[in-house]
């Protein structure tokens, strides 16, 4: 399968990005969705997909966010929002929760990022600014432990600089840990020696290469858009 260029439309909306990530998660996967935009992927998982959501504060089988009278302060997601429990759910303590992550039992995690490098390095915990308060949470454990680390981010920062870079300038979260990068204009595979563009939205690969200061390969078999593995 070769690179698919959707030039007949504009870039993906945030909801469409979430839907594309959900599309690529194999049925039956154990998945951790990071705080923020990655959380929106949950709403796009196919009913009956058998995907089980893990939350690092000690639960498998997490259901949707709840509000009002249904909110239980003892049942929250990693972002401390009240959530629900699905049939078949289980609870465990923090050391077990991270052991299952670090031990390679989690299939997929989806994280946001400040930067991803061409070799799959991830920077998403600390800007390195002198007055910044560093807060890592579970990001390093997830980046190190999940079999596939998917990043959801805009391709360009507010100042217009690319966030997919030859080498990260922000402090690293993990080295060579990212499999794929989902952005509003393109989906990249960064798991191999080359950055491979699998799919574009709103512009062609040629236009994209022009905007990124990066060597990018087109997809050839067996890589291509679609599900992981």
């Amino acid at each position: 399968m070769s690179t698919v260029e959707h030039t007949d439309r504009g870039p993906l909306s945030r909801e469409e990005m979430a839907a594309v990530v959900a599309r690529d998660i194999p049925d039956g996967s154990y998945v951790n969705l990071g705080i923020g935009q990655p959380t929106t992927v949950a709403a796009h998982l196919r009913p009956g997909s058998g995907v089980v959501l893990h939350t690092e504060n000690g639960m498998l089988g997490m259901g949707p966010v709840v509000t009002g009278d249904d909110a239980d302060p003892d049942l929250t997601n990693a972002g401390k929002q009240p959530v629900s429990e699905l049939p078949g759910a289980s609870y465990f303590h923090h050391a077990d929760s991270f052991a299952m992550m670090r031990g390679g039992h989690l299939d997929v995690c989806v994280l946001g990022a400040y930067q991803v490098s061409a070799s799959g390095d991830l920077a998403n915990w600390h800007t390195g600014a002198p007055d910044a308060i560093p807060a890592v949470g579970g990001a390093m454990d997830l980046a190190t432990g999940a079999k596939d680390v998917l990043v959801m981010m805009t391709l360009f920062a507010k100042d217009g600089s690319p966030k997919l870079v030859p080498a990260c300038t922000y402090p690293l979260t993990g080295v060579g840990c990212v499999s794929r990068v989902y952005t509003e204009v393109a989906l990249f595979d960064v798991s191999g020696d080359d950055v491979v563009v699998l799919e574009t939205w709103g512009e062609s690969v040629a236009e994209l290469v022009d905007r990124l200061q990066l060597r990018i390969a087109r997809a050839t078999r067996p890589r291509g858009p679609g599900r992981l593995r």
Binding site: A99, M101, P134, V136, G137, D141, G145
Partner: peptide, 17 residues
């Protein structure tokens, strides 16, 4: 920020372990 607290940041799973 006022320099009145020392902070050691530890990855969450490493903290638990």
């Amino acid at each position: 920020r006022a320099g009145r607290l020392e902070l050691e940041v530890v990855p969450q799973g490493t903290l638990a372990e």
